[in-house]
């Protein structure tokens, strides 16, 4: 579980309000709100001590309205502002996402390939990770040429390293007599 305790508390409160069909939509809306609020320009303005609490709440309400968030999310944004937790909104979105994944039996994985994978290759790896986690896998695919070849997958805090760079490093250590 990621995020601070405060973020987890707010995320849990929000998810308990959501109905089954709304959790993912609210998650997406929360991420949009977090992305907007955490943009450097807005972040600086919202955290300015010159801004009164009322103005800050009004500003966040307007942002939520402009993002066309659902009414519960607009209210949530105002509550967050009232409790002076605007800086935590990114962590709240992350904690909410984790809770949704838990609720829906999903797990996120980061797949880093040495070269851009085909859809089939990515799907194979995702299926392999799903068999391990026995959950639906939501992949984030990255490409890193430093791997030289192969793939590195991160799932639930565990790393599965099938990269050539790592094999080469291991071989180098063996050759140097340090392994």
């Amino acid at each position: 579980m990621k995020g601070s305790r405060v973020a987890q508390r707010y995320a849990r409160a929000l998810i308990e309000l959501a109905e089954r069909g709304q959790v993912e939509q609210w998650g997406a809306e929360l991420e949009r709100l977090a992305a907007m609020v955490e943009s450097p320009e807005l972040k600086e303005r919202l955290s300015s001590p010159e801004l009164s609490e009322a103005s800050r709440q009004e500003a966040i309400a307007k942002i939520a309205e402009r993002l066309e968030l659902s009414f519960p999310l607009r209210s949530f944004a105002v509550v967050i502002a009232r409790h002076k937790r605007i800086a935590e909104i990114g962590a709240i979105a992350e904690a909410y996402s984790d809770l949704v994944d838990q609720m829906l039996g999903r797990e996120r994985a980061t797949l880093t390939f040495a070269i851009q994978p085909s859809d089939e290759e990515a799907a194979r790896v995702v299926a392999g990770l799903a068999a391990i986690a026995r959950k639906q896998i939501i992949p984030t695919i990255k490409v890193d040429k430093e791997l030289l070849g192969g793939i590195v997958a991160e799932l639930g805090g565990k790393t599965y390293d099938g990269s050539l760079a790592t094999r080469l490093a291991e071989a180098q250590l063996k050759l140097a007599g340090q392994a």
């Binding site: 990770l129 391990i132 030289l148």
Partner: peptide
Amino acid sequence: ARLARDLISSHFLDADQSRLLDGFMDRL
């Protein structure tokens, strides 16, 4: 290691990546 890295970088093919993926899938 540096020589091997250079060699791999210049001669790495899609087929090599596929073989590595196969090996990775076996591990999974």
